[in-house]
Design a protein around this nucleic acid. Structure first.
Length: 425
DNA sequence: AACACGGGGAC
DNA sequence: GTCCCAGTGTT
C-alpha cells in the first residue's frame, strides 16, 4: 500500500496524520514503556517461528491466561512443524480440547502440511507467502511476520483497533470487517521499522492493560500526550462498536445410555459444523410440542420415574429432587416413549429408562445457546449390531482418549454428581 | 457484508 | 445477567 492510498483512507475517515517527528516520539514513548512493563510470556522467550505461530493461533479470540497451559502442552506434544503435520486428528483435537474454535487447529495442521509440501518444512519468511497459509488471516500474518521475522507489517486485532480509535478519535465501527483496513493503514504509518514485532506487541499489551475496554486509565498511559480522545474528553465515545446478535436458544435431549458392561454410548459429531469431530453423549432434538397426546405437566410431576426399577428409598430421593423447571413440559412418560422411538430408529437400541432429567445443562456459544436435558437409561439386550459407525460404547476409564467439548463435560459432571450415586453406579 | 465458529473472565 | 477478548473461513 502506497502512502498516497493511506492519505486517501485517512482523509475519508477524518484522521489527522502526524508529522515524522511526532511519529518518532510516539514510537519511543511506546517502546520505552514496553521495555519496562512488557509481560513475561512463554512465546516471548523464543524466536522459533513455529512456536510464535502456535501462540498466535491460540490467542485468536482467546485470553493470554487461558492460552499459556495449552501452549506448553501443545509444543510438548507437537514440537515442530513436521510433528504437527504428521499428527493424528484426534490427537490435535484432544490438545485443543476446551480452547474453542476448533477449526483453528485443523487449519493449522493443514498449513503445517502445506509448509512441509511447499517449503521443505521451513516456515516461509515472506508475508505474502505466510498469508496464504490456512488459518492465517491478516492479523496473524502481520503478527508472525513482525514478531518472528522483524518485518514491518501491521497486526491489527481488537486491542490495536481500540487503542488507535482512541488515539485518533476514529469513528469507524470496529465490529465491521471493512474497518480493519483503516486501522491497518494507520499502523503501517506508525510502526517502528527497527522493532516492528515489539511495536505490535506493545500496542496489544497497552490495549489489554491501560487502554482496556471498560476501565481505561489514560492518565497513566505512556502515550497520553498522543491521545486525542483523552485530550478532547471523548474517551467514552471510543471505540465505536456495534453490538453482536444474541445467541439463539436451542433445546436438546442428552441421552446417557449404559450397557451391561457399564460402558457409555458416545457419538462422534459430523466432520463439519459446530464442535466438528468431537464426542458427546447422543444429542437429540425432540420437538416436544409435536409429541402426540402431550399434556402440559404439573411442575412437581414433570419428572416421573420408572418406579418398578427402583427401590422405595431411591424413588423418594428422586422425587425430592424432581424437576424445578417452571416451564410446562411433557411428562417423562411421554418423552420416554418418544425417546425410545428415536433411539430404536437411530441407534438400533432398546433402552430401559431409569431417570428423567439427570440434569439440565446450559451452554452458550457465540451464536447458539444450548439447553440440554439429560435422560439416563440402560440397554439390557446385546443387540447393537445396528449401531451407527459414528457411535461407540466406551468405558469411563477410556474417556480421556476422547475429545470432549465443554457441554459434554458439563453433562458428565452432572451425571456423576447427581445421578450415578443414586443408582450406586 | 454477514454469518458460523467456543469458551472463559471481569464486572 | 452484561460485555469483552492477540480472528478466520465460508457464503
Amino acid at each position: 500500500m502506497t502512502n498516497l492510498e493511506h492519505t486517501k483512507i485517512f482523509k475519508a475517515a477524518g484522521i489527522e496524520m502526524w508529522p515524522a517527528e511526532k511519529i518518532q516520539a510516539f514510537r519511543k514513548a511506546l517502546l520505552d514503556w514496553y521495555d519496562k512493563e512488557k509481560r513475561d510470556l512463554p512465546w516471548r522467550r523464543t524466536s522459533d517461528p513455529y512456536s510464535i505461530w502456535v501462540s498466535e493461533i491460540m490467542l485468536q479470540q482467546t485470553r493470554v491466561d487461558t492460552v499459556i497451559p495449552y501452549y506448553h502442552n501443545f509444543l510438548d506434544k507437537f514440537p515442530d512443524i513436521a510433528a504437527l503435520a504428521a499428527a493424528p486428528e484426534d490427537a490435535i483435537l484432544k490438545a485443543w480440547e476446551g480452547l474453542g474454535y476448533y477449526s483453528r487447529v485443523k487449519n493449522m495442521q493443514k498449513a503445517a502440511q502445506q509448509i512441509v509440501a511447499d517449503y521443505n518444512g521451513v516456515f516461509p519468511k515472506n508475508p505474502q507467502e505466510i498469508a496464504k497459509l490456512k488459518g492465517i488471516g491478516p492479523y496473524t500474518a502481520g503478527a508472525v511476520s513482525s514478531i518472528a521475522f522483524q518485518i514491518p507489517e501491521p497486526a491489527v486485532d481488537g486491542n490495536v483497533m481500540r487503542v488507535m480509535s482512541r488515539l485518533f478519535e476514529i469513528d469507524a465501527d470496529i465490529a465491521k470487517p471493512a474497518s480493519r483496513k483503516i486501522f491497518e493503514a494507520v499502523v503501517r504509518e506508525l510502526i517502528d521499522p527497527e522493532r516492528p514485532g515489539d511495536f505490535n506487541q506493545a500496542l496489544m499489551d497497552l490495549g489489554s492493560s491501560i487502554c482496556s475496554p471498560l476501565n481505561p486509565q489514560p492518565e497513566i498511559s505512556p502515550i497520553k500526550a498522543f491521545n486525542a480522545a483523552y485530550k478532547n474528553g471523548t474517551m467514552h465515545l471510543y471505540p465505536v462498536k456495534s453490538k453482536a446478535k444474541r445467541p439463539v436458544p436451542m433445546n436438546l435431549q442428552g441421552i446417557i445410555l449404559q450397557n451391561k458392561e457399564k460402558q457409555f454410548l458416545l457419538e462422534k459429531r459430523p466432520s463439519s459444523g459446530l464442535l466438528a469431530d468431537f464426542w458427546t453423549f447422543p444429542l437429540i432434538q425432540l420437538d416436544l410440542d409435536a409429541i402426540p397426546g402431550t399434556v402440559a405437566a404439573e411442575p412437581e410431576s414433570a419428572a416421573s420415574i420408572q418406579t418398578e426399577l427402583l427401590v422405595a428409598e431411591e424413588f423418594q430421593k428422586l422425587t425430592e429432587t424432581a424437576n424445578k423447571s417452571d416451564k410446562k413440559l411433557p411428562s417423562f412418560n411421554q418423552i420416554e416413549a418418544k425417546l425410545s422411538e428415536v433411539v430404536a430408529e437411530k441407534y438400533g437400541l432398546k433402552p430401559v429408562w431409569l431417570k428423567a432429567e439427570t440434569g439440565s445443562v446450559n451452554h452458550v456459544f457465540s451464536h447458539i445457546k444450548w439447553h440440554i436435558t439429560g435422560y439416563y437409561g440402560r440397554v439390557l439386550t446385546k443387540e447393537d449390531s445396528r449401531l451407527p459407525e459414528q457411535c461407540r460404547w466406551v468405558s469411563e476409564n477410556d474417556f480421556a482418549d476422547y475429545a470432549f467439548p465443554v457441554p459434554q463435560q458439563k453433562m458428565w459432571q452432572q451425571f456423576k454428581q447427581q445421578t450415578r450415586k443414586e443408582f450406586g453406579l
